[in-house]
Amino acid sequence: MSFGLPPVFAYALRRLLQAVPVIILIMVATFLLLKLAPGDTVDALVGDMGGADAAYIARMRAEYGLDQPVWVQLWRYMAKLATFDLGWSFVYEQPVSVVLMDRLGTTLMLMAASLSLAFTLGIALGAIAARKAYSLTDNLISTLGLVFYATPSFFLSLLFIYLFSVKLGWLPVGGIKTIAGFYTGWDHVVDVALHLIMPTAALSLIYLSFYMRLMRATVLEVADLDFVRTARAKGAGEFRLMIHHIMRNALLPVITLLGLQFSTVLGGSVVVETIFTLPGLGQLASQSVVQRDMNTLMGIIFLCSIIVVVVNFLTDVLYARLDSRIELA
């Protein structure tokens, strides 16, 4: 089924086709689960208005199609979704797609920053710990990793805010930019970066400890393999051994983990964005739950499913590029 395409494209196409049923299943399950929860958009809207009479509520329900049986509603939603129409958000008075796009950038920025920090620092510390296994350095790094691992991100977030914003006043408490700062150009970049430091740190430390632990273990394992001995017998120095022979092989499982964890980082961003009032998808998700803004919530889930599918695909391609033994087929 290659259609004469280059292997990577044929592979991508196949993965895409595989993803379609998965996403449909996710959407149907989420829809039904949300319907199981008590209350709907109309309840939330009426609650905001301070109450309304029964006839008005019934008319609103009929207008939004909420009086129909669940199966009909599901069918209507899925039919629209097939044309990538995510519907209307009654809370934001905008199409859901517009609401999502507004928020996507912030979340992607937070995730990219957190994951790259966690990954680079994690593998570096892991490699160092492994090379100095059972020494003081190793114990120090490993203990630190354990502490990061055991500290929930919401606690870290509050700790950071207390320390760096309240006590020291170095960093802004929340938000993505200074309100009424009207920075432009480079100043804007710096402003956003300052706002992202604490959320990024809070979100990344726990993942950093994952990568570190795994990297330490795989480096120790690879360092004992025969080809490392061969390289040593060729007269290679320790640094060369580490870079070309050990790390190159030890990175593979860590990359797998990176791909797998992307979705959990997405989940973790809900907490961190809420605490730091970052206008991202995570914060939007938690607000939509409270406001029973079902269309927005479904939209977020749809978008996240697609992101996860794409990232997993990219991880596999990257893995195949890095591991000569794997061919995309």
């Binding site: 061969t230 017998a233 070309h244 190159r248 890095l322 000569s324």
Partner: peptide, 21 residues
Amino acid sequence: IRGRDIAMIFQEPMTALNPQK
């Protein structure tokens, strides 16, 4: 000296070569 004056050949040629190079 290693590799230049004294060279080694190992038992298991699969594992004795780096799989990624």
